[in-house]
Design a protein around this nucleic acid. Structure first.
Lengths: 246, 246
DNA sequence: CGACGAGTTGAACTTTGTCAAGCTTCGTGG
DNA sequence: CCACGAAGCTTGACAAAGTTCAACTCGTCG
């Protein structure tokens, strides 16, 4: 059940980007132009640090590939604090001048664009929709952190894995990277272990168990949720579906 | 080693409140007046729900007592997502209209005041210092969540407990509730268990161990850090000391 | 070719949870 | 005033979950 280092998965175009933002707020024509006009593309290799803890995080938007926020500990251990997908920002957009409380690292090859124009525009009062979208994305970040804490504090390995897969499923769905409950999942076992607070060995066994039970299928870096309802039940999943689009 | 239900600990006056905010930003005279003028005091009994998940959280400031954000799960389990101390807000101050992604419950008897004037003022552009303080307090919330994730994901019982005590120590210090590395700690073992993702039995054993080792002393609802340096070392503590006061 | 990183597997070991019982304190109602 | 129940704390014995260690495989990349 290998997870080959993928090349960042299917790409992500302006239309998807706009659809993504539209989940959060309705944008004016000027704001849509701003989104379409994002540029300053940069490529990052897998494992590359996008930001060190303590330095201000560059305001960039991920266009392709996966990254993570993480905290490094003694003895080359690390805790992954959150997984960043296409459509997510590397740094906080509100107060971008602050030192980042954590490191950000690429988990796959990555493509990002500069989000500086968005940070600038949202600070002016003429882009209310954009500002609201950014606020809501920060709020979503908190919900994801709450999910993460809940998984680590209350769930066993089996439920943790199931819950994380459902979360990725929902988030990737927002940006059009899911088809028939299947999505590219470039995370290696060590990475999953660091995210879920489990040893590599145990993540391996747990995933195999879920596959053997016919709930999940993992092959070639693609995850298929075979019995989504059963997975939701066993992991007490609650949708992230938000009070958005107000 | 009992933790008697305390009465919320020593109170917290306008001077402490101002000192607390001043950790985050320098405030104008008008903003200080705003803080001093906060009113609409309300008392809450222990266990009382201050906010249900999914409803907008009332913008209130805790003046005395402890509360928590928590997520309820099947089988009367719950995960405590964060502990709220005097000086903390019940709801998010930025975008207070959003449904709260979690419940908020009093852990002790509680006294709060309405923070509506602060929410209103920070929305206008004439109170930059206040707005900055609120943003930084939201940023601090994130750092606390990161700490929490790190504890749950990477640390064993002993380190988790030590790390949490150090965190409470630092935060309570900001609001003047620490003297000689000692502070009132009204959390019961069940509450600590829900926060740390451990069973009551194991929290008990772990605390006893730390006490037996002379690192900690707990009696009568008061925690004393006997060897703070040793505790910091063993739990890989990093101070929350912030890039604040810019 | 060799090193490395990832995945896999079994076995021993550790940490933590569960169960069960007994204790104290405290508040309530007879 | 006492009896009672509810919550919290404590302890021991046992079971379950997860970690660590070690060995082996397989690709990939230099």
């Amino acid at each position: 059940m290998p997870f080959p280092a993928s090349v960042g998965g299917p790409s992500f175009d302006a239309a998807s980007l706009i659809r993504h933002f539209s989940v959060f707020a309705s944008l004016s024509e000027a704001e849509l132009r701003l989104l379409r006009g994002l540029s300053g593309t940069r490529r990052h290799s897998s494992q590359e640090d996008l930001c060190a803890a303590g330095l201000p995080a560059p305001p960039r938007l991920i266009v392709a590939g996966w990254a993570c926020r993480c905290r490094l500990l003694a003895g080359r251990r690390r805790q992954i604090l959150g997984i960043l997908l296409p459509g997510d920002f590397v740094g906080r957009m509100l107060l971008p001048d602050l030192p980042s409380p954590c490191a950000v690292a690429a988990l796959t090859e990555l493509r990002t664009v500069s989000a500086q124009p968005l940070a600038d525009a949202s600070a002016t009062s003429t882009h209310a929709g954009l500002a609201r979208a950014l606020h809501l994305m920060a709020y979503l970040d908190d919900m994801l952190l709450f999910n993460h804490v809940m998984r680590l504090g209350q769930q066993r390995a089996r439920e943790r894995v199931a819950h994380l897969m459902l979360e990725l499923h929902e988030r990737l769905g927002w940006v059009g990277l899911v088809r028939d409950d299947r999505f590219a999942m470039p995370l290696t076992l060590p990475v999953l272990g660091d995210a879920l607070g489990l040893s590599v060995v145990h993540v391996n066994r747990t995933l195999q168990q879920l596959c053997a039970d016919g709930l999940l299928d993992v092959s070639d870096g693609v995850v298929a949720l075979l019995k989504p309802e059963r997975l939701k039940e066993l992991s007490e999943w609650t949708p992230l579906s938000l009070p958005f689009r107000q």
